[in-house]
């Protein structure tokens, strides 16, 4: 009898220990991989406080001489136009692109996923095909179009395409999400007498929210980082974006201002990180279950 109880206690404690150690192992694993993910950021961060000469010449991870000069010098930008201006410009472009992408892509996606109309499959195929041509060969024709409309050196070439749902990636993404929404829900709504517009706004959009959030996050990050389009279409410094501002510190034939580049890179990552943290809650707080019940 006594032996048995001891035995029982032992099993109990050993399972709880194994459970605990399993949990611990999980966290250790996550943290180790996490460090691998974070290393570049940490390196960039610590380098941004090093004087230019120290960045590549010392092997130490931590700055030996701590300086804020990189931030001051970097922020001052060029000829009186500061990085504050570049940030404002980037925010403006990004915000417009998000609005454009969310509205135009979700509309097209709704049409492809839920509406029946002639040539639907053909248009869908065309949508996919537009993604398959490397952009380098369409740059010049596109530039000629915008130049003939005298829109070069404005933000129109960067923003207008989003309002015309040129990024098929997001259309296809939202289509896939809408297609996993049960069709019976549509029927129920249709029986209630709702037309396609109400169906779009009141049922599909809320249910496809994770896709819209994903579209927002990606549009933000990709537009923020995209520099090639900005490089070709924006040449006046007052219109410069953060991505272009960062390129300013580099010149293969001259001197690179690494310190300033790193400092401003760190600053430019802040909004990206913030947007990810802010919007990811929509990916975490499950709306699917609540939604289906309500």
């Amino acid at each position: 009898m006594k032996k048995d109880t001891v035995y029982e206690v032992r099993t109990y404690s050993s399972t709880s220990i194994s459970k605990l150690s399993k949990k611990l192992l999980k966290h250790v694993l996550i943290v180790t991989i996490g460090l691998g993910m974070l290393y570049p950021l940490l390196w960039l961060f610590s380098s941004s406080f090093k004087p230019n000469t120290e960045i590549f010449q010392s092997n130490s991870f931590f700055p030996q001489t701590f300086t804020l000069d990189n931030y001051k010098q970097g922020w001052s930008g060029l000829s009186g136009v500061t990085f504050g201006k570049f940030f404002a410009n980037s925010f403006f472009i990004v915000a417009m692109c998000i609005i454009g992408n969310v509205i135009a892509c979700s509309m097209a996606a709704f049409a492809f996923a839920r509406l029946k109309f002639a040539l639907r499959k053909m248009w869908f195929a065309i949508m996919l095909i537009t993604m398959m041509l490397p952009f380098h060969v369409t740059i010049i024709p596109q530039y000629i179009i915008f130049n003939s409309l005298e829109l070069v050196n404005t933000y129109v070439p960067l923003i207008l395409p989003k309002f015309l749902a040129v990024e098929s990636f997001f259309i296809f993404l939202i289509v896939q999400f809408i297609r996993s929404i049960p069709g019976e829900l549509d029927e129920a709504v249709k029986i209630d007498g709702c037309g396609p517009f109400k169906l779009y706004i009141y049922l599909i959009m809320p249910l496809a929210l994770p896709a819209l959030v994903t579209t927002t996050i990606f549009t933000f990050i990709w537009t923020w980082n995209d520099f090639f389009g900005q490089l070709l279409y924006i040449s006046e410094i007052n219109l410069y974006t953060v991505a272009l501002g960062l390129r300013m510190f580099l010149d293969a034939m001259g001197q690179n201002s690494w310190g300033a580049l790193f400092a401003m890179s760190i600053l430019s990552l802040v909004p990206l990180f913030a947007i990810f943290i802010f919007f990811q809650r929509y990916l975490i707080e499950g709306i699917a279950t609540g939604g289906l019940k309500g």
């Binding site: 509205i103 509309m107 097209a108 065309i126 749902a165």
Partner: peptide, 22 residues
Amino acid sequence: WVGYLFLSPWLIGVLTLSAIPM
């Protein structure tokens, strides 16, 4: 009519900004 209405922004985009350069 409804389908093409929802599709119209994309359709304009594809016929001008994508199709011509392509």
